[in-house]
Computed example of a mutant assay.
Amino acid sequence: MASWGDLADYVRAEYDVVHDEDEELRILFTFGDEDEGDDERTQVVIIVREVLDKMHEWVQIASPCGLAKDVNLREVLEEVGRSTVACGLAIMGEHVVVRHSLPLQDLDIHEFTDPLQLLAGTADMLEETFWGGDGY
């Protein structure tokens, strides 16, 4: 990947984009196999272009899990510490989100898709475990 435009074009071609605006894409990541009768779970993932120090392009991947006011943050952070490899937890607005950032320069597509999949799975697991649903 050389630029935000290249990555955005890839995301539009490969994922279910539910929101597309300038430097932000939102996709609906789906889990489960319809053919096997599994219940499908979905996770909204937000992909945003960020510029560090007004010169370095990055992509931030984030996915909401639930409202911060509705959870014991210590328990969630302990679970992330035990079970997460490639993501961090943050509060953005009122929501707890799983977040990961990558530099766009010389980005290999697997350096994006693998963390995206891990992040979506982590957010979905945390949402189900700590908020008890599939709202995002």
Rank of each mutant, 00 (worst) to 15 (best):
Y10D: 12
A68V: 10
D39R: 12
D6Y: 04
D33A: 05
D22V: 11
V80H: 06
V85Q: 14
R12A: 06
A62M: 10
E78S: 12
E75M: 08
E36A: 15
L25M: 14
I27W: 08
G32K: 09
D6T: 14
E21G: 12
R49L: 13
E23N: 13
T42Y: 00
V44G: 06
V59S: 09
L25N: 07
E79A: 05
Q60F: 08
G32R: 07
V51F: 07
K69Q: 06
V85G: 11
D33M: 11
H19K: 15
H56P: 06
A86G: 15
E14H: 12
R82Q: 14
A8F: 09
E75T: 09
V76F: 02
N72G: 05
Q43V: 02
I46D: 00
D6I: 10
E79R: 05
Y10P: 11
D35R: 11
Q43C: 07
T30I: 06
C87Q: 07
W58T: 11
R49A: 11
E34Y: 07
S3M: 09
W4M: 07
R74C: 08
M55N: 15
L73Q: 13
Y10C: 07
V51T: 13
D33C: 04
V51Q: 10
E23G: 09
H19R: 15
E34L: 10
V11S: 03
D33Y: 00
S3W: 07
I61M: 14
R49E: 15
R26M: 13
V44H: 04
D39Q: 14
C87R: 06
E24C: 11
V76A: 00
D35G: 09
D53Y: 05
V18G: 04
E79H: 08
R12L: 08
